[in-house]
């Protein structure tokens, strides 16, 4: 079935540099540095990436970081909890806007 997202495109990510090589070089250097062990371990960073991938709903990132999380030694329980963190923030971000709705409603209501 023809789809917009093709799994075989993921390994071609670097090809994005064809049209703007300098920018791509800077981006990928930054990207790789971000995921190196620092104050956080590579395993912890990959769990954050997995959660963010779900928040931004990127199928490529979900595929890639599911694999990375497993390869960094995380298990399904940890990965599922990480996604719930993203879900909680996304849901909370929507819900907190309910206060704006209340404010707007209060303003025009008796």
């Amino acid at each position: 079935m023809e789809t917009y997202y093709k799994p075989e495109d993921l390994p071609k990510f670097q090809e994005i540099g064809k049209e703007a090589p300098d920018l791509a070089k800077k981006f990928f250097e930054y990207y790789n540095t971000v995921f190196e062990e620092g104050e956080l371990t590579e395993r912890e960073k990959s769990l954050i990436a997995l959660a963010v991938a779900h928040a931004v709903q990127c199928p490529y990132c979900i595929d890639a970081y599911t694999q990375t999380c497993l390869e960094k030694g995380s298990h399904l329980g940890e990965m599922t909890e990480a996604i719930h963190v993203a879900v909680a923030i996304r849901g909370g971000a929507s819900l907190v806007h309910g206060l704006q709705m209340h404010n707007a409603a209060d303003k025009i209501s008796m």
Binding site: E42, E71, K72, H75
Partner: peptide, 11 residues
């Protein structure tokens, strides 16, 4: 626990 590589030994 599947078809993926192991984590680094040190970590």
């Amino acid at each position: 626990s599947g078809a993926f590589l192991p984590p680094s030994q040190a970590s």
